[in-house]
Design a protein around this nucleic acid. Sequence first.
DNA 1: CACCCGTGGTC
DNA 2: TGACCAAGGGT
Length: 358
Amino acid sequence: MSELAQRLLAWFDQNARSLPWREDPPNPYRVWVSEMMLQQTQVETVVPYFERWMAHFPTLEALAEASVQDVLRLWEGLGYYHRARALHRAAQVIIAERDGVWPQKAEEWQSLPGVGPYTAAAIASIALGEPVVALDGNVRRVLARLFDLDMPVNTPAGEHELKRLGQEHIPPERPGDFNQALMDLGAMVCTPRSPRCDVCPLAELCLARARGTQAQRPVRQPRKTVPHYIVTAAVIWREGRVLLAQRPPQGLLGGMWEFPGGKQEPGESLEAALEREIQEELGTTIEVGAKVGVFQHAYSHFRVTLHAFHCRLVGGEPQPLEATALEWVPLAHLSHYPMGKLDRQIARALMQRSTPSR
DNA sequence: CACCCGTGGTC
DNA sequence: TGACCAAGGGT
């Protein structure tokens, strides 16, 4: 075993974080669910979602038999909702097409929906002992600093070099612990800003530390700046209920429910934008009334300022022209409908208005 | 390969 | 406050 691996594992044995999916022996279902939740999401955020998920879907079979709506409801707030649908679909594939037998190699795992190179390597190394490096953001950063890599890590060439360096050091005896040790080290010691080199078990092996380049590693290619949209939403009332629309299964917030509306176009008032959007989406006419509130939100690739209005139906019956479904919902039932952050904020504002505390 | 896909935290 | 980052994958 390389000195790097020895030092890293010795550190891990003393400092590993205690996490609900880390068990001996590892449970493939729990490891898989945790890795899906952990994609682009920090550990502290995932833990409560993981516990709630396991309480509802304790086994592969329970997940396969669940409804999409229940799956999305338990995922609400985690983001990247495609992950939840993929996890659900993959569970059904394993039951129906593999007779409930887990994939035995990283390559087989990667054929499942929602499982890419990282997740396949993580599961295979942790749950099956396969010696494959799991390259996530932490591992990229730690390796880029250890070897003072000057090529951008978010390019095919950088990716290839990182994988080569990792494979060179991963010990066949404990591949899962090696990967998790790199991740824990990245999360707790070799952090993006102000790395704690004074307590790092690999400090004496670290080229970036020797050269003082920690702050410049890893090198990344810059991203594009994100646009900012002004959008509107309608809270359309009828007999004490509000109208919710379900988004199509693909794309942004797929399958989630929302208050209908859309972008304001240049030269258009907020009210005119909302009336136009409702005509396009629902085939009916509304009268825009008082403002519910103004809400800010940043998605992954754009940011929005949303103006929500109370509205009254003055045209015909709304039709689901762009939505998958429409439903008139009493305020007390809004929590049963999975929503993104922005629409949940609107829902909360409506609840607070109708049920004042104290 | 470039772009799409959420949310919370940090400086 | 905006920009960046986080246990990435799909198309």
